[in-house]
Design a protein around this nucleic acid. Structure first.
Length: 885
DNA sequence: CTAGTCACG
DNA sequence: ACGTACGTGACTAGC
């Protein structure tokens, strides 16, 4: 059998490993504070390769430094790249140490890149009859694929690779591996920063290479090409194309000081490797080494617990210090879920029971309500609401595992304790799905031992994760966010949910019957126009009627068929009267199903109220969301829908609904964060911000009348800026040409240069650190900021700039809610906070308290944080949510 | 269980 | 050449 040669592109794999694990970067640090994610990922890759490939010789090649013969030849080669993050740079020496401990050689050569070392050795291997495997994160190396050399390029993560053989290259690109060089010479390489020929992209480059075989031959026969813009560019850029070809060519004759004879694979050096793993804190790799277990590494010990009954409640008095507590509610909706059992303990003793009624008894109730005893829980809000139903007021929540975990990384949020624990490398607790099952089979086990073990493990996990998670919050400067905002907010939200909002079901029913009649009429008209009856709610059937039977033009398609969305139907409305009817039908059907029958289903019969649940640990930006039902999307824009709000009424006779909302809070946050002088000035002058934006970007004099259309366009531009604008997107929305939209955006950036700078800086920050943050250090990790796919990367860039704005606005209203609750209590008002709708707070209060709220609420809201522009709050009051004025 | 649609900020 | 504005939840159809 042929000898085998393994060549690894060290730099590119280390980069890949680092960015693949970037969203977990904080989980990978050793006890000295060294980041280890890239080292860990590198080892994963190595194990994966060595599992299938058994090399006789193996080498990991590294770049020697920034200066190479390519940079000498072309100044900008690899220019414009972002600085390598410090968290990565510090790992390189250790990767080399790891490589040695694994029995591979490593090598670098001044003035040359790792690619050239690999190219040269691969050629030597080819000539000496080796089968060679090259592992890299860089697709450029596929030019080295040959009959005896395969190039494995990492695909997703570090272990998922795509294998390039000459046949595979042919299949993907239609050219030979060596012709990849010619292709790149023509199209350039944006990541290595050389240009190629003007206006030639991958498609055209491949076409030309197929036609002419090589760059040289192309220029020998350039006269054969018909006159065209492309030909002009080719002639113009001949010099560049030839130079790019040299840049793109990986050397196969670099002056190496080593040869294949020097790089025999030695196999793992066990002792070195164990010492290395210990230094890095790689427990999982250590565990695989088949060594005698370490003393004291005993955290997999089965958990011991005691079943609590009415007869041994005294056991509770033996608990000491902070307590971890968990009340099991199997249904997601904790307002109505049954109680399956609970666990309470102090880290050594765990007391469990199936009987939640025991909690009402003195010793347990006293502990839970004691402000002197700190409690550790998972999802404090669910626990507060659940215990409230048992007449218990849970006090002094210190640690909430769910909340802390969400703040550390919004990406891996789950409502399952076992799942969350796993995210933090804690394995001693099962997930609910593992113990309770899923779907229809899901049930609390009858077997006591199974159930109690699971409960006790949950409490133990909460207990064990407290200190490490607090430490991580502190490292992220997120302790104030946790203790001063999110934990206090939990109580505020729990109170709002428990209070609920009164809904007049008769009002809804009356509206429902009217809607039913109207629907029947419209249906008849639609069937008449269509010439048959069909299900209007089915996009498939509707598409068939509109685009096949009635032959209306197809404007947009979806993955599965014709699009029938509003913007499409609006374009068709003047071509067939049926379209207008369908739009009407849709609007009414939506009201009927979601807002009439939907809301009627969730009114509690006991109090005629709706009790929503706010999800505090779901959104990627720090906003709340509302479920069961969603009270943050009750209709308001269209008059027919708005009527739904008539059903939302105060819970007492003589009370009123009062609401205050922030005016343009996101744009004010934008002015604050970007520090843009012009935007700040407009807000400080108290201007109508969309009008003043119009004045600036359309270059109008200060006293000019702003017509509605201009204001509308400026408003769309303002929204676009906040969302991460594209000319195409803006053009779609305001119905102008793409070039006009482009001009608006350019004007905006010229008028508000601070905003432009902020966008660039924020994206650069995200690239360097892998996350962005709000004014309170709320974080969002953006692993896709390094994605190869243009659209994924672009999306990450837009969210990078949007998240600090949307998220800071969310921070602000959260602070206001906490202050408001305190003020209501301190002033002994009867008023209650009922709803939060992102930039709006809704209250109910006795009519005589309304004047107090008129002053108090705006004052609390606009002083929640001190920005360098004023916050503005507007208030309304009325007898129902509909009648606010 | 996913896709399409539409309600909100 | 890419594919197109940020963040959500509920309902219905149809596999």
């Amino acid at each position: 059998m042929a000898k085998q040669l393994l060549l690894i592109d060290g730099n590119s794999i280390v980069f890949r490993a680092f960015f693949a694990m970037h969203n977990q970067i904080d989980k990978f640090t050793n006890k000295d504070g060294l980041h280890t994610a890239a080292i860990y990922g590198f080892k994963l890759m190595l194990d994966h390769v060595l599992d299938k490939f058994h090399p006789d010789a193996a080498l990991v090649a590294f770049d020697a430094g920034k200066v190479t013969f390519r940079t000498k030849m072309y100044d900008d080669y690899k220019g414009g790249r972002n600085k390598t993050p410090d968290e990565l740079t510090e790992q390189f020496p250790y990767v080399r140490e790891l490589v040695e401990a694994c029995g591979l050689h490593s090598y670098e050569l001044k003035n040359y890149e790792a690619d050239d070392i690999i190219g040269t050795l691969a050629k030597e291997g080819d000539e000496a009859g080796y089968e060679t495997l090259i592992v890299t994160g860089d697709r450029d190396l596929t030019q080295l694929a040959s009959d005896h050399t395969t190039v494995a390029v990492t695909h997703k993560g570090v272990t998922d690779t795509e294998h390039y053989t000459p046949a595979h290259v042919e299949e993907k690109l239609g050219i030979t591996p060596r012709q990849i060089i010619d292709m790149k010479a023509l199209m350039g390489d944006s990541s290595d920063n050389y240009p190629g020929v003007t206006k030639i992209g991958e498609k055209t480059a491949i076409k030309l290479v197929k036609q002419f075989g090589s760059v040289e031959n192309l220029y020998d026969h350039i006269d054969d090409l018909k006159k065209s813009k492309m030909k002009e560019h080719l002639v113009e850029d001949e010099e560049i194309a030839r130079q790019c070809k040299t840049l793109a060519t990986i050397l196969q004759d670099a002056p190496l000081e080593i040869s294949l004879d020097d790089i025999a694979y030695r196999g793992e050096q066990t002792e070195k490797l164990v010492a290395f793993y210990q230094q890095m804190g790689f427990k999982s790799f250590l565990a695989k080494m088949d060594l005698a277990p370490e003393e004291g590494a005993d955290d997999s010990a089965p958990v011991k617990y005691t079943e609590l009954t009415a007869d041994n409640l005294a056991a509770v008095d033996q608990l000491k210090g902070e307590l971890s507590f968990y009340l099991e509610m199997p249904d997601a909706n904790y307002h109505t879920s049954p109680f399956a059992g609970f666990v309470i303990g102090d880290g050594t003793t765990w007391l469990v029971s199936r009987d939640a009624e025991l909690l009402k008894q003195a010793p347990l109730k006293k502990l839970l309500e004691s402000p002197a005893v700190a409690k550790n829980v998972f999802n404090a809000k669910a626990q507060i609401v659940g215990l409230h139903r048992l007449g218990i007021d849970l006090r002094n929540v210190d640690f909430d595992l769910l909340l802390a975990s969400y703040l550390l990384n919004t990406n891996d949020n789950s409502n399952d304790l076992g799942q969350v624990a796993l995210e933090h490398d804690y394995h001693e607790v099962a997930t609910d799905e593992e113990v309770y099952g899923k779907g229809a089979k899901r049930a609390i086990p009858d077997d006591d031992q199974t159930f109690y073990t699971h409960l006790a493990q949950k409490a133990r996990a909460i207990n064990d994760l407290r200190d490490p998670l607090f430490k991580k919050l502190d490292d992220n400067q997120q302790t104030p966010l946790y203790t001063e905002i999110e934990v206090p907010l939990t109580r505020v939200l729990a109170a709002m949910e428990i209070t609920g909002i009164k809904v007049n079901s008769q009002t809804l029913k009356d509206m429902g019957s009217k809607l039913t009649e109207r629907l029947a009429d419209i249906e008849d008209q639609i069937y008449a126009a269509a010439g048959e009856e069909f299900n209007i709610n089915s996009t498939k059937q509707l598409g068939h009627i509109l685009f096949e039977k009635l032959k209306l033009p197809v404007i947009k398609k979806t993955k599965t068929g014709y699009s029938t969305a509003v913007d499409v139907l609006e374009k068709l409305a003047d071509q067939a009267p049926i379209v207008e009817d369908i739009l009407q039908y849709r609007q009414i059907a939506k009201l009927q199903s979601t807002y009439i029958t939907g809301l009627l289903k969730v009114i509690h019969s006991s109090d005629q109220k709706i009790h929503t649940r706010y999800l505090q640990t779901l959104t990627q930006t720090g906003r709340l969301s509302s479920v069961d039902p969603n009270l943050q999307n009750i209709p308001v824009r269209l008059p027919e829908g708005r009527l739904i709000r008539k059903a939302f009424v105060p819970s007492h006779e003589g009370w009123q609904i009062f609401s205050s909302d922030y005016s343009q809070v996101e744009l004010r946050v934008l002015a604050h964060i970007t520090g843009d002088k012009n935007l700040q000035e407009d807000f400080k002058n108290g201007e109508d911000i969309h009008a003043s934006t119009a004045r600036r970007i359309f270059h109008l004099p200060a006293d000019a009348e702003i017509d509605r259309n201009m204001r509308r366009r400026a408003k769309a531009v303002n929204f676009g800026i906040v969302y991460g604008i594209s000319d195409y997107g803006l053009a779609q929305r305001i119905h102008v040409s793409r070039s006009q939209a482009h001009e608006f955006i350019q004007n905006y950036f010229k008028e508000f240069p601070g905003v432009k700078k902020y966008i660039d800086d924020t994206i650069a920050f995200a690239r360097e650190h892998g996350y962005v943050e709000t004014i309170t250090h709320r974080r969002r990790y953006l692993p896709d900021i390094h994605a190869k796919s243009f659209s994924r990367r672009s999306f990450a860039e837009r969210t990078a700039m949007n998240t600090p704005i949307q998220g800071s606005a969310a921070d602000i209203i959260k602070i206001a809610m906490i202050r408001m609750k305190e003020e209501i209590k301190q002033r002994q008002l009867q008023a209650r906070m009922l709803l939060q709708i992102h930039d709006e707070l809704v209250f109910e209060a006795p009519a005589e308290e309304i004047p107090v709220l008129q002053k108090l609420v705006p004052q609390v809201m606009d002083s929640a944080v001190q920005l360098n522009v004023p916050l503005k709050v507007e208030s309304k009051v009325g007898d129902t949510w509909y009648d606010l004025k």
